[in-house]
Structure formats: structure tokens, C-alpha cells
């Protein structure tokens, strides 16, 4: 079970980073399995750096919340190999290759 207050607090850590670049972030869905779906808006929507923003701060902060099993963002089109590589380079929360 995800602590929604903790989840919101985690999101509040990431939000200033994207607000500072003209974007924003919201949680669009939380599944019973603990998968959190997020959507980025504003300037983030078509930003070439979207994958890095997602796999770096956004996913890492949210994955640290107890009960969160995965974080997904449909706007991120990069493949798992690329996201895994990014996560390694950023020392972010590890991203599964498959």
C-alpha cells in the first residue's frame, strides 16, 4: 500500500525541477500493484531531455516511496536499454532492461 502523503512529498521534490524549465508533473494513475503513472506537461511534453528528467529525478524520487513498484510515463518513448543506461550514468534508481 502506497502512502499517498509520502508520494506527494516525493513528487514535490521533483516538481520544482520541472517547473523551473516551464513544465509540470502530475500523477495520473496508481494501480493496485503499486505502479504509479505520471504525465509531464508544458515545456516537458516535447523536450528532448524528457527521458533523462523521468529516469533521473522523477522516477528515482517516486521509487523511493514504500509500496511503489514501478513508475511509468507514457510520453517517454526511449527503450528500456536506453533508460537503463541513463539510470546507470545518473546513479539514479536502476531501470530494468527487460
Amino acid at each position: 500500500m502506497i502512502d499517498l502523503h509520502a508520494l506527494e512529498a516525493a513528487l514535490d521534490r521533483a516538481r520544482p525541477l520541472v517547473l523551473g524549465h516551464g513544465g509540470d508533473i502530475e500523477i495520473t494513475d496508481i494501480t493496485r500493484e503499486g505502479v504509479v503513472h505520471v504525465a509531464l506537461s508544458g515545456a516537458c511534453r516535447a523536450c528532448p531531455n524528457l527521458a533523462m528528467t523521468f529516469v533521473g529525478p522523477v522516477r528515482s524520487y517516486l521509487m523511493a516511496v514504500p509500496g511503489v513498484s514501478e513508475v511509468r510515463c507514457e510520453q517517454v518513448k526511449a527503450g528500456p536499454r536506453a533508460l537503463s543506461r541513463l539510470a546507470n550514468l545518473l546513479h539514479a534508481h536502476p531501470y530494468p532492461v527487460a
Binding site: 527521458a51 518513448k77 526511449a78 527503450g79 528500456p80 536499454r81 536506453a82 543506461r85 541513463l86
Partner: peptide, 14 residues
């Protein structure tokens, strides 16, 4: 098929 090399070097999805 998206070659592994392009996935690795350019971040393209499978």
C-alpha cells in the same frame, strides 16, 4: 528490428 547498437547509442526504442 531496431539494432541494439542504435538502441544503445541513440536511445531508440525496440
Amino acid at each position: 528490428v531496431m539494432p541494439d547498437e542504435l538502441q544503445d547509442k541513440y536511445g531508440y526504442p525496440e
